[in-house]
Structure formats: C-alpha cells, structure tokens
Design a protein around this nucleic acid. Structure first.
Length: 567
RNA sequence: UGGGGCGUAGCCAAGUGGUAAGGCAACGGGUUUUGAUCCCGUGUACCGCAGGUUCGAAUCCUGCCGCCCCAGCCA
C-alpha cells in the first residue's frame, strides 16, 4: 500500500485539535462522535466522517462515540442500527463502551427544555405547521412573531407538561426557542425544539409522545458526552449559531466546538439516502447491498476492502471545498490494496474453444502456476492442461488491428505457464461466427524448459475445457451516465441518468477447478481481467458466483480507443 | 435581491507575506510468460477576475464574478 499523501494528517481540523491540545483546552482530551440517524445504510460519504472521527480519536488517544441520532421514530428502524454497527466494525473501528443513543438522553433533554421555558427562552406555539411556515418569512424578508410567543411561563410549563403527557394530538403544538424572528439566519427564527409524535420509539417504546428536534438533541448529547470536537458536514454550518445558543443558554457539563468540513462525493454516484432508498423501492437495484450501490454494504459485497476505503478517504483530504472525486481514484485504491493480497488465478469470461491438434487425446498435465508472480511466499498451485482448452474470445482476432499481439490465424501466442501455440485453423458456423480455433503446441516451449525462453509477443490465460468449472460472473459498471447525477438538470430526475449497462451477467464463464471451493468473500485476481470476489449471498457450495470488483488497468483498451479515434 | 461557505493544473490537495509540495489521472520510456505490477521521466497552474497596500502577495485590503447550503413540526 502506498503511503497516504504527505499532507494527510495535517488538515485544518487536525490543526485545530493539535492547537487545542497544545493550549490545554479540555485538559488535552479529545472526544469525538459519529452520530448517524438510523434511517438508511451508511454510504461512502459516511465513511469519510467515520474515518475522520474515529481516526482523530485514535490518533489522540481519545475516544469516539457511536451515537445513534434516534429522535424521529417515524423514520428510524432497528435494521438500520444493526447495519450501521456492522459497517463501522467492518471498516475497522471500535467504539468500545461508547455506544449511545440520543434517546438515552431524552430525560435530560426534556429537563433542558423545561429550564429554557422557566428562563423565558422557550415557548409552546399552538400555530399549525403551515402557519409557522408563513410566519417564518423568507430568505429576504424577516419573519413575524407568533401570537403565542409571549405566553406566560407558567402557561408554557403547563402546556409543555401536557405535550409530554400526551394530551395533544400530533401537530397541535410545538416547543420553540425564543430567539429572533428577524434573524438573517433562518435557523435562529425561533426554531422548533420539540414536536409531538405519538409513535412507538424503537428504544423508548411509548414512554414519550414528543421528541426533540435534531439541533436541540444533538447539541445537548454532545455536551453530555463531553465531546470536545463535534465534526459535521458543511450544510450544518448555518446551524452552528443555534448550537452555540443552546450551549450558551443551558448549564451543561462541557462545551463542545462544532467544526464543519465538506462532504465527499464520488463521480457517477449518489450519496443521498433518499435517492438510494428510491433506487431500492423502484426495484432498480436489488437492495442496500447491491454491489453497484455506493453504500458500505454494497461496496463490501462488491469486494472493496476496508483498507482501500480508508486509503481513499484519507487521500481525499479534509477541507471545506465541495469535492467530486473521480471514480478512478477510488478504484485505484482498491487495485492498490488487492494487488498486494489477491492470489492470481485463471478464469475465462467469454470462452472460445481451442483444440490443440498435436496434443494427445486423453492426456492431462498438471502445470505449476505462481499464486503471485511478485510474491513467491504466496506459493503456487497446479492447473490441469488438456487437448481442449478455452481462451478468452477477445484474445483471438481473425483480422487484428495494428499492435494486437494475441492469437491470430498463423500467429503464435504463449499460454501462460504452459506452451506456445500456433493457430492453424479457424472453424466457423454458418453465420460466419468463429466457433473453434485449432492450434498446434510447440512441445519444447513448455514453461520451465529451456525452450520456454523463446519469446513471443503475447501471453494469454486459458483454462482446460474438461477440467474447468462453469460459473456465473457479474460485471459492474458505473451506476450513472453522468458525473453528478445529484445535480438534476432539464427537469430530469436522477433515475433518468441510470446506466443501463451497470450490470452485465456473464453466465458461462470457466474457472480453474481449484476455485470451486472458494469461500464467499474470497478475493482473487483473474489474471489479465481484474479482481473478483465470491459473492457473499448467491454462491452455492461448490459453485461460486463471482462479482467483478474492478478491472485491471488496461493500456490495450486505451490504445484501441486511440486507434479508433484516428480512423 | 437576506445569511452562511467555497474558489491553487482534468480530479483531490499543501501553502498562513519572500517568489507555487505531493497524490491520482494524462503523456513518454524501461523491466515483464498478467498489454497487470514495478521502475524512470514529462506539468510555467494568468493561485476565480480587477484594482490596491508592500522592496516583495496565492497569502493583507477593496470591489466584482462563479459555485454550494439555508425558508422541515427531517437529520
């Protein structure tokens, strides 16, 4: 693995934290938190936040809470809680004892609300949601005070108690902070602190009939946990004044500082939970863990490694500038990691039969192949060689372009770890499609023999026809046809930009026999093709299904494109 | 047209007044029984634009332009 770029570790947030430690702020403690709402699966954007928060805690001998922001029972679900914990663990982080929920603090948050009411800093508003919106004003016009804004404290206290006790229907009233209806920052125009939701909460059951809003619950939770640095994404920058107002007007045990950074977006993907969920609802993908999804579960099933994801976000950096990072940067991290650890094997995705006419029928040799050409410690394996083999259909061309140095009529090519063969005949069906190629082997060119030193331009992979196993392989491509599907244009929805070829199934692939028993989750390199993983859901014993994780770099494809462009 | 944020090579990103790091991509070349890996080499980026301050500015000031976020009883 390459070292992250030299500046990693010195981003502006880490600089702030280093300065705080140096000045003795918080007695030098560093406490962070990753606060997901359990209303969807984690995606690549969250990976950034997870690595930042847990990474910073680790680097500073601090700790990082995994806190579920479960303040809206209408949207949240235990399923999502489970998936989030599994994803964070898989990514390589440990929250130890620091697993919490905003709901753990509901009583304390309630008491904070009461305190604000008692201090005349919060009031119960009986306006409807529509009326509140109308009173809020617009971006350019100030809002107007609610007629209930100056209710006596005693009345507010009574109303709030009755909200808590379930005396009112959903929407009948809310608790609002009394700040400034003319504030240029919309978040300060008397933001809602509590709303009535007569729903069973997945953790607190029916104990509450009202729930705190994000800003209120989150700020108090941070302070209660002794969070020193509360890191969040840019869209919360406008909320910081409210965060600070809450800290200023309550007596909390600590004073966290909110710092915002930009979200990480990957080109040709989306990271909106709503849109991700829509893809599932519409049946456009098979689920949250569809290997095309930019979710952690999807990328894991796709075969990406946790290490490569960590490297990726670290290389991306931490700044306040909007990022749209090339897919290739992610893929490169995956290749870089897998190149080190994935054993090499042979598989043919689109088989073309080759008959070696001068090789005895019924004969079989076991040839030795290295599991990793650059890492001898990974050992070797034997692969069966027979008279009939399969090669990649792409590796034969009847009328090849310039610089094509694989198999062609009359031409020679090396079968990796085996013999040099020469094409002597091409068999076609009535439609003119090549169905079979006949070749002769050069027996002196067998790998390991002195004659093997003879050079030919190309080397291709192959698999024995009789001694290989048929499997299904799934090939994935980018999910969208445009770099930034989140930015809708011309009134089109993001689903209008779905790539119809994001999934291609190769149903009749052939793999070397030793792979039949590969366990789900096993990652290998199919030589010359790419990295593949045994699917963790659909594999049957003895009959694995493979997902293509990422292709190898392909300078031939690039050359071919360049040649085509010249025509 | 209110408020907040951001603008350094195709994509990320250092730089915090002294004369533009690094990574990825791209392009050359070498090694190679994976057209992979690996290795070597190649970039004047009008530092968004225009003024100003200064001996000197990507870094300070002023004005402008562009992009993103905010009007949930979502987070």
């Amino acid at each position: 693995m390459t070292e992250p770029s030299g500046t990693a570790g010195t981003d502006f947030i880490r600089q702030i934290i280093a300065a705080d430690k140096a000045s003795g702020k918080h007695d030098g403690r560093v406490v962070t938190r990753f606060p997901p709402e359990p209303n969807g699966y984690l995606h690549i954007g969250h990976v950034m936040s997870i690595c930042l928060n847990f990474g910073i805690a680790r680097e500073n001998n601090g700790c990082c809470y995994l806190r579920f922001d479960d303040t809206n029972p209408a949207k949240e679900d235990q399923d999502f809680v489970d998936s989030i914990m599994a994803d964070v663990s898989w990514l390589g982080f440990d929250w130890q004892d620091q697993l919490t929920h905003a709901s753990d603090y509901f009583a304390a948050i309630h008491d904070c609300a009461v305190k604000l009411i008692e201090d005349g800093k919060a009031y119960v508003d009986s306006l409807s949601a529509d009326e509140i919106r109308a009173h809020r004003g617009t971006l350019t016009e100030p809002g107007v005070d609610s007629p209930h804004r100056d209710r006596p404290i005693a009345e507010n206290l009574d109303l709030f108690r009755r909200m808590r006790d379930g005396e009112f229907a959903d929407g009948a009233c809310v608790l609002r902070a009394k700040i400034d209806m003319a504030a240029p920052n919309m978040n300060l125009r008397d933001p809602t602190l509590y709303r009535i939701r007569k729903l069973v909460h997945q953790r607190t059951g029916d104990a509450w009939s009202m729930y705190p809003m994000y800003d209120f619950a989150h700020t108090i939770s941070d302070a209660l946990e002794g969070i020193t640095h509360s890191l969040c994404t840019l869209e919360f920058e406008d909320h910081r004044p409210l965060y600070e107002w809450i800290l200023d007007n309550l007596e909390l045990p600590s004073r966290p500082r909110q710092i915002e950074f930009s979200r990480l977006n990957v080109a040709y993907g989306i990271t909106s939970k709503r849109k991700l969920a829509a893809l599932i609802d519409k049946g456009l993908v098979t689920g949250w863990d569809d290997p095309r999804m930019p979710t952690v579960a999807g990328m894991r099933r796709r075969g990406y490694t946790a290490q490569s994801l960590q490297t990726f976000v670290r290389n991306a950096g931490v700044t306040k500038k909007d990022k749209l990072i090339e897919m290739g940067a992610l893929e490169n991290c995956v290749r870089e990691d897998l190149n080190e650890c994935a054993p090499r094997v042979f598989a043919v995705l689109d088989p073309l039969k080759v008959v070696l006419t001068n090789y005895p029928e019924g004969q079989m040799e076991r040839l030795t192949a290295a599991n990793h050409p650059n890492l001898p410690d990974m050992g070797s394996r034997e692969i069966p060689f027979t008279r009939e083999i399969y090669i990649e259909r792409d590796d034969f061309m009847e009328d090849p372009p310039r610089k094509f140095f694989r198999l062609r009529p009359g031409g020679e090519v090396r079968l990796r770890y085996a013999y040099i063969i020469k094409c002597v005949d091409v068999i076609k069906d009535a439609a003119g499609n090549v169905t079979e190629v006949h070749c002769t082997i050069d027996p002196e060119s067998k790998s390991g023999k002195p004659g093997a030193e003879r050079k030919v331009k190309g080397t291709i992979h192959w698999v024995s026809a009789a001694e290989s196993i048929g499997v299904e392989v799934r090939l994935f491509d980018r999910m969208f046809t445009v770099a930034n599907p989140d930015a809708e244009r011309d009134g089109k929805a993001f689903t209008d930009f779905l790539n119809p070829d994001s999934l291609t199934i190769a149903p009749d692939c052939r793999i070397e026999p030793g792979l039949a028993a590969a366990a789900p989750g096993t990652r290998v390199q199919f030589e010359r093709l790419g990295y593949f993983v045994v699917d963790i859901r659909d594999a049957a014993p003895g009959r694995p299904v493979f997902n293509r994780i990422v292709t190898l770099r392909d300078s031939w494809a690039k050359l071919e494109r360049a040649q085509l462009a010249q025509i």
